[in-house]
Amino acid sequence: MNNSPSSKIWKRFKRNRLAFGGLIFISILMLLGILGYSIIPDQTPYANTYQLQLNKVKPGRTFKFLITERIKNVEKADFFEKMLYGQKANFRSVPITSYRIADNKVYAYEYIGDEETAKESVYNLKDLCATCLLPSKLGNTQMLLEKHNIYEQTFYLGTDINGRDMLSRLILGIRVSLSVGIMAVLISLFIGVSLGAIAGYFGGKVDAGISWFMNVVWSLPSLLLVIAISFALGKGFWQIFIAVGLSTWVDVARLVRGQVMSLKEVEFVEASKALGFSTSRTIIKHILPNVAGPILVVASANFASAILLETGLSFLGFGAQPPMPSWGTMIKEHYGYIIMDAAYLALLPGLAIMLTVYAFNLIAIGLRDAFDVKGQNVTV
């Protein structure tokens, strides 16, 4: 039986059902974000296929489409390239309500709304599907047209104001939120652990100077600080990593400083000094491993804060820029419809943000309880 400290911590964490459920939820989000384009209905880059006729379509609607043009010289992406970057469309299509074939022509009624009927559009059958005119054992002309030029698509979460699939853009938005969270937490950990460990270990004027700097940054509102950094670095996806990371390191630094100050006088640290170990080795190999638990708790909480900051910046126009799908941008584009008949356009990304942040907070609480051995039953 494995009785190592890490296994005991994991067992205590699993006993917290809410925290473990939050971990499962985040794991599912990460899997969806990694698979990305390979599992979403709209696999074009950024899920940015406009169908203006289908704007604000209610969830669950299914439409029939007629392929009107084939785009030549479109390279087909392999599986991994498609999963990461999507596949450029090799055709153009229009939503239709019905069609008929007569005299080698296709007469189609395009969809322009539930209450209106479009004029009949006429297409040459030869231009749409040249092989449909040839004798074939696969079926008659209508069957061949159905096979090659007609398809159906179900919009499970409806469409936005530009007729883009909401489900596809919500799933791609996972990548933006989680990637910003991961990079921001890594940046904040690097800066916070470094400055906090130096301040706590050396003390004196070094501690006073670093503490003064931490208090200055601490006094600035996070959102305003991120906006100021964004102005300096410019708008964009990569800039947001740095901006959010530079605004969330103070919590880590304050925690590490206090932990290092309490540990630097204990016996094993004094022993490492007596053995002549370098200061960096003493801090990295002997002190920091003993504060890993509290650091993980703060990092989980900072992950949630980073997601909220990113969505707030995207809402204000400083985050991920269109057409890249971001939950904050989706709310910005649709918040005016909350009091109308399309409230789901803003509620769906808002619900995604709420559940994700809640899950990370649950994980932080679960880690705090798992690493806190006080009050746990100890058997000898």
Rank of each mutant, 00 (worst) to 15 (best):
E69Y: 12
F80Y: 12
D78A: 07
D42G: 05
N73S: 12
P45N: 05
Q53A: 14
E69D: 14
Y37C: 02
L84M: 13
N48L: 09
D42R: 01
Y46K: 05
I71A: 06
P45Q: 03
F63R: 04
A77M: 13
Y85Q: 01
N48Y: 15
L84N: 03
A77Y: 14
I40Y: 08
L66P: 13
L54Y: 03
D42L: 05
Y46G: 00
Y46Q: 08
F65V: 11
Y37N: 02
E69G: 02
N55S: 14
G36M: 08
I67G: 01
Q53C: 03
T49G: 00
P41E: 02
S38M: 09
N48M: 07
K56L: 10
L52G: 06
P45T: 04
G36S: 07
G60K: 07
L35E: 07
Q51G: 03
V57M: 09
M83H: 05
G36N: 03
P59T: 02
L54T: 02
I67S: 01
K58M: 13
K76Y: 15
Q53I: 06
Y46A: 06
L52R: 13
Q53S: 15
T68N: 03
I40L: 07
K58R: 14
F65C: 07
I39K: 02
T44W: 07
V74Q: 04
I71P: 05
N48P: 11
F80D: 05
Q53Y: 09
T49P: 04
Y85S: 01
K64T: 15
L35S: 11
T49L: 09
Q53K: 04
T62P: 07
E69M: 08
E69V: 10
Q43G: 13
Y85R: 04
P41L: 00
T62I: 12
T62A: 00
L35W: 13
I67V: 15
I39F: 12
Y50I: 13
M83W: 12
P45D: 06
K82G: 15
T44R: 05
I39N: 06
G36I: 11
I39S: 02
K56F: 12
Y46H: 14
D42W: 04
I67A: 06
L66C: 12
Q43M: 14
A47R: 00
Y50A: 09
K72Q: 09
I40A: 05
Q53H: 08
N73D: 15
T44E: 09
D42A: 03
E75C: 00
F79K: 01
K56R: 15
A77Q: 14
L35Q: 05
T62F: 07
Y37M: 05
E75F: 04
Y46L: 06
I40P: 07
Y37K: 01
Q43Y: 14
K76S: 11
Y50Q: 10
K56E: 03
D42Y: 03
E75L: 07
S38W: 14
Q51P: 04
G36K: 08
G60C: 11
Q51F: 15
K56I: 03
T68Y: 08
Y46V: 04
P41S: 02
L66V: 13
I67E: 05
K76F: 14
Q43S: 14
E75Q: 11
G60T: 10
Q43F: 11
P45L: 02
L66F: 15
Q53M: 10
M83L: 11
Y50E: 10
I39W: 09
K82D: 09
K72D: 01
E75Y: 08
F80H: 07
Y85M: 07
I67Q: 02
Y46E: 08
